[in-house]
Amino acid sequence: MSVANRPVHRPLSPHLQVYRRQLTSVLSILHRATGIALAAGALYLAIWVVCAASSPATYAGFQSFNTSILGRLFLGGWLFSAFYHLSNGIRHLFWDAGYGFELKDAYRSGWIVVGVSAVATLASWIVGLR
């Protein structure tokens, strides 16, 4: 067969309508979602220190948002995103270094990520969101 006619063996995108949901795909899209959430969180962190650098009244306004229901959801969501993206990010770095590609390893490390981020998130909510 000439080179030009050889079939192209490259991976094709999953077709979402017929794609079965599974742990690995859910964790993958969660990494992206939490990355975007953390990007918003980084802007919020900047707003926080800018408020702390201005008057007590400005800071009090900022704090009253943090202690509102919406603020609690926001900060709680940030903590979950941070712990999840952190532990799954370490999983990513192991892959980048060439480890953990076997399917059973990908599931095992995936469940570890679920466990670690669930425990860390719950602990931080209990201590921090009183």
């Binding site: 704090q63 903590l79 931080s124 921090g128």
Partner: peptide, 24 residues
């Protein structure tokens, strides 16, 4: 940057939780 953020994010998340309720 991901590597550098591992200790930084852990430190910041723990600090945030411990500082909860701190005043101005």
């Amino acid at each position: 940057t991901a590597l550098a953020l591992i200790p930084l994010v852990v430190w910041f998340a723990v600090s945030l939780v411990l500082m909860s309720g701190a005043d101005y």
